[in-house]
Amino acid sequence: MEYETPDIAQDLQMLQELAARNRTPQMRAILQRVMPQHPDHHDVLYYSAQVDWLEDKDEDALATVSQLVERYPESYWGRMLLFRILDGLNRRSEAETVILEMLREYPEDALLYGRYSILMLESMRIEKAGELAARAIAIDPDDEIALTASILHELLADPGEPAKQRLAELVSRYPDAVSTALMVVAVLSEQDQNKEALHIAQEVLRQSPDSQGVVDLVISLKTANHWSMVPLRPLQKWGWGASIAIWFVMIMLLRNVEGTPIEPYALPIIIAFIAYAVYSWVWPPILKWWMRR
């Protein structure tokens, strides 16, 4: 499909509109025409990298954005895109180098702190991630990425009131964003409200059925909410504590069963306990596999 625009400003405007709508084939059509005429133009290089990134061609995107950053080392959005691509490629130490360089130039940028915090979370540097998220919120309490990083950190540190409060702030500022919905799902799951979490996750899936991450999330939640998982509810709700408590009760019961009315039932009780333990280990992955079929 051809978009005949007279000059570069209009082409760039169209590229921006198309990028906002994720129209990568149309973006490619414009870039194919514009690139030979303006091979070193900042925005042309940026959109060229972005279109590869949107289509998950990370290596190609990296090559182009590296060219952009080499040509325009001060480019904020070029370096931000480079950071995102390196993170996506799991080249995290290089991504960290990029974001640190940007933070030294823009020490009051909440978005940068937020992104760095999320990078630290992905790299299991939880304490540092928390400090970075706190810094991001202090600079700009309304920044979406800062709020997201903060919620994620709170979920890991203490999945209770602090996470809920931050979530309330995110929802009030960005009520219809897909990322907000995913944060709501994360908080609800942590608080064992799996039914509500599933409902919201399914709404997200209806908007993004091509996202494997969202599909996997819905499958996990459907598994957790399945009727055959009802016997495992105590384990879902109280985690390993429940497992240990059940084990302890069984042991105490069996060690003191001699001479009591339940002595004849000791063997069936042991079998039931072992069956329950095996069921709790074996059934959830089987159910998940079956759901995915």
Binding site: Q16, E17, A20, R21, N22, Q26, A177, A181, Q207
Partner: peptide, 16 residues
């Protein structure tokens, strides 16, 4: 139509 009426919850663009 998906390009013209792109989901507002997915788009960052004011013009979209």
């Amino acid at each position: 139509l998906d390009a013209l009426a792109y989901s507002r919850s997915k788009s960052n663009s004011t013009s979209a």
